[in-house]
Design a protein around this nucleic acid. Structure first.
Lengths: 119, 119
DNA sequence: CCTATAAGTATCTTTTAAGATACTTTATAT
DNA sequence: ATATAAAGTATCTTAAAAGATACTTATAGG
């Protein structure tokens, strides 16, 4: 780890891509579910507003994690897909998923033992 | 990936621990630099306020990522260290560091070629 | 001519994180 | 008696992210 310049904590570069209430979910959907239309995503992400979905998609597009393709028809048809570059996040997300899962179980166990101790 | 219940995106569990402007840095410092006092950390994290440092440390402590030990002396002495559990984040942070580094270089190359194209 | 449709915009409000600044505590050394 | 030190609290302000709600656009189909 760089001791001299702590700004060189590159973890933040990755976090920057992933931070956003719905971004991991969006990425996972496109990564494992393939190309999706705007309305498909909105249906999949229960509770998201159109404004928020638009923002998150545009940011991911700007980072070249996803691709946005507009078909010039009426009513509009817009398709989102993961890019090749976006796919490079897969091992990272996988490990985060694993750790997050273990973390969740750990917390459930903790609650469990608290519960037992209170008996 | 769970298709039925998208709330089961466990990546968010990991993100939840890591989100916080200074948290990755704090974790890295304790993980690789060993036990540190409050003032050591404040010196290391240039620009952080006491209030923010306190908040971030307390949150990490609550998640059992770090340990806070108070020595009952005056003036106070408080030491922070990474827990064994906190150490389990190391592979995750390592991968995020790697990806983030590659991402940074990619962006630098992009800027470079934009620069060249404008000649 | 009216309506429905998909993918958004435009505003406004709420929530949360972080920063700025001043204050507190208490045994010890002067 | 007073000043000092370390590790904080207490308030207030600012900024950024997300939510609620209403509106827009352009054409094909009835």
């Amino acid at each position: 780890m760089e001791k001299k310049n702590p700004d060189l904590c590159k973890v933040d570069n990755t976090l920057h891509i992933l931070i956003g209430k719905w971004k991991p979910l969006i990425i996972m959907h496109l990564m494992f579910g393939g190309t999706k239309r705007f309305s498909d995503l909105q249906r999949a992400l229960t509770g998201i507003t159109t404004k928020t979905l638009t923002t998150q998609l545009r940011e991911l597009e700007e980072q070249e994690i996803i691709l946005r393709v507009v078909y010039p028809v009426v009513p509009p048809r817009v398709e989102y897909s993961i890019t090749e570059y976006g796919m490079t996040l897969q091992p990272v997300l996988h490990l985060m998923h694993e750790w997050g899962n273990a973390h969740l179980e750990r917390q459930l166990n903790k609650d469990q033992s608290t519960f037992n101790n209170n008996q």
